[in-house]
Nucleic acid binder design. Structure first.
Length: 586
RNA sequence: GCCCCGGUAGCUCAGUUGGAUAGAGCAACGGCCUUCUAAGCCGUGGGUCAGGGGUUCAAAUCCUCUCCGGGGCGCCA
């Protein structure tokens, strides 16, 4: 609809250009918007205001000329000039009827489009280190990423959903060591657990699995384990050096092969847990991409070599540095440490190089806001590699702060004090969790009120929308009980009977849905859809209270049933994109 | 110190590339169930858009300074 109107305006501009009213070389960017106030018509354009200056005329006069140059159209009932020079379009009722028919005919496809023309696009999200279960902070990235991916797919992109598994770094070694230490405790060793180890109960569980599998076969005396290991923090030492020492001793005592088994047991158990958790949350992936694979297949080394060849690296203090300041980063970054180990950053460069090599038109990364400092350096690396850094979009998701009983919950992964995503889902349910997480703009800090999310009351917005859906289903059940039938085709021919203000408002909203999906997808803003659905539900509830649907007059009844079924379809489609269920009864 | 995000009604937040009289939910107050589920509807009150300056036909929106809140600034991941 919007596109139609801007095309009409474009033709009007063409005509004014050819008759000399407007300069022939004038560049125009035509914007048509929904009006906020129905008094101003259904759609409005500020075109005359924008062009007035360069055309050196007054805006209202130009608006009049544009209006007169508009080609006739069946969907436009009339056009008015208002205010400083807005061109307001009032649409014919048939335009709204068409939207109702489309919603019913297209069913679950209503609102989808081919804007993206099936171009390939990648969305990488969550990608939490597999060192523990997902917590509520990851939940927001999961819900947001899944919804953005679904939205982009809905507007015609071929979306590849990916989780980057950090299975190669030091954090994983700390996890493996933590597991082994818990195992030793289960063997009966009495040790003091390192300050920097992973303290969560799940580490015990994995240690127990290890013990069931091997018995005491992997047991080593404590004195052996601690030989040459620097003191821990509690003993006045450095906790980082202590844990690194422990890692080294574990590897030596277990041997690379056995150590790798412990390591992989931890990785697999936790990754399985994460996979299951996300799957239950309705968050699906096409690929779980292993960081280790980048090391193994030489990609990391290749990335480093390419950077070296680009001339933007140097050696200092025994380390290899990338001069990211050449591309606007705050400081240079280390690629290879003085001990010969590559940094996380190196893997990340290799990973993004790999993504672009796979040929995606756009690559979208969804990160926690605490990683915002990494954006410039990753983009710098891509530029140095000669890639187009603009193909990478990094969306930063702010933290969600949890409240329970009006009190803020404090969380820390390392200490094991956090609310897991699974606990949250059990407490408030998947629907409320998915909904609440995307209710706010991603760059907004979010207060997540657990009590509100799980309340089964009118305070809870997710129920409000679901209830509208359930009410339509209920009306249809009532209809059958009364022995009546709904004739959809007949209803389509009777839509002109829908003359109530409530019906008009509902039809307009239904017609807006495809525009909302498009805007939410293009701007990566699922909350637009959330607000839209709330408004639509409100219009439905208002209508429901004001008018009877199952009236005796069959023509009017069928027309009304068409309308509310169209509304039901839109709610179902919208909720599906949000990963929220649309129940038939509540 | 530097960088990122935010500051809009009592609370939580919307507000499209700058547009017409700044909106919604919750909370508060007053109404509506003999009628398709009251998890609903209708009505009332509530604002220095943090503050100053600037840009223009037009600023909550863009620029600049100040104040306040959160986060980030490792050869960690």
């Amino acid at each position: 609809m919007k596109h139609q109107l801007s095309q009409l305006l474009a033709r009007a501009v063409d005509q004014l250009r050819s008759d000399g009213t407007l300069p022939a070389d004038l560049e125009v960017d035509i914007a048509v918007e929904r009006t906020r106030d129905r008094q101003h018509g259904d759609y409005a354009s500020n075109l005359a205001l924008v062009l007035a200056k360069t055309a050196r005329t007054n805006p209202r006069e130009l608006a009049h000329k544009l209006m007169q140059a508009l080609p006739p159209s069946e969907t436009v009932a009339r056009v008015e000039i208002a205010g400083p020079g807005f061109i307001n379009f009032f649409l014919a009722a048939s335009a709204w009827h068409r939207a109702v028919m489309q919603a019913l005919q297209q069913g679950k496809h209503y609102g989808r489009s081919d804007l993206g023309r099936q171009r390939p696009l990648q969305v990488e999200f969550v990608s939490a280190n597999p060192t523990g279960p997902l917590h509520v902070g990851h939940g927001r990235g999961a819900a947001y990423g899944a919804t953005v991916a679904d939205l982009l797919e809905a507007v015609g992109y071929r979306v590849h959903r990916e989780y980057y598994v950090n299975d190669a770094g030091r954090q994983m070694d700390i996890l493996a060591t933590s597991i082994y230490l818990r195992y030793l405790e289960l063997c009966g060793e009495d040790l003091s657990f390192p300050a920097n180890g992973y303290q969560g109960d799940y580490v015990w569980d994995i240690g127990a699995t290890l013990h069931r599998k091997y018995g005491d076969a992997l047991r080593q005396p404590l004195t052996e384990l601690l030989r040459g290991v620097p003191a821990d923090e509690a003993q006045g030492g450095d906790k980082e050096k202590h844990i690194d020492g422990l890692i080294q001793r574990c590897r030596q005592l277990l041997g690379e092969e056995r150590y790798r088994e412990v390591f992989d047991l931890g990785l697999e158990s936790i990754l399985d847990n994460i996979r299951r958790d996300l799957e239950e949350f309705g968050v699906h992936y096409d690929e779980w991409f292993s960081e280790r694979s980048l090391v193994d297949d030489g990609s990391v080394e290749r990335a480093i070599e390419r950077l070296k060849a680009s001339g933007h690296t140097y050696v200092k203090d025994g380390a290899l540095w990338f001069r990211s300041t050449d591309y606007g980063d705050e400081k240079d970054r280390v690629l290879v440490r003085d001990n010969g180990q590559t940094t996380y950053f190196s893997s990340d460069i290799a990973y993004h190089m790999n993504k672009l090599e796979r040929g995606y038109e756009r690559v979208i990364d969804i990160w926690g806001a605490d990683h915002h400092g990494y954006v410039p350096r990753v983009k710098a690396a891509l530029q140095a590699l000669g890639d187009d850094a603009d193909r990478l979009d990094v969306l930063l998701v702010q933290f969600a702060i949890l409240y329970r009983g009006g009190k803020r919950l404090q969380m820390s992964t390392r200490s094991g004090e956090f609310v897991t995503l699974r606990e949250l889902r059990r407490e408030v349910g998947n629907d409320a969790a998915r909904f609440f997480y995307v209710m706010r703009k991603c760059e907004q800090h979010m207060d997540f009120d657990l009590d509100l999310a799980k309340s089964r009351s009118n305070e809870n917005p997710v129920y409000y929308i679901q209830y509208a859906h359930a009410r339509v289903a209920s009306v249809m059940r009532q209809m059958e009980e009364k022995g009546l039938q709904w004739d959809r085709d007949h209803g389509e021919r009777q839509l002109h009977l829908l003359e109530e203000a409530h019906e008009d408002a509902l039809m307009v909203s239904i017609s807006r849905y495809p525009e909302v999906v498009e805007a939410a997808a293009v701007h990566h803003e699922p909350h637009l859809l959330v607000h839209y659905l709330r408004d639509l539900a409100n219009e439905f509830h208002t209508y429901y209270n004001a008018h009877q649907f199952l009236v005796d007059d069959q023509a009017l009844r069928d027309a009304r049933l068409n309308l509310i079924q169209a509304a039901r379809q839109v709610i179902a489609n919208g909720l599906e994109l949000l990963g929220v269920s649309a129940p038939d009864s509540m």
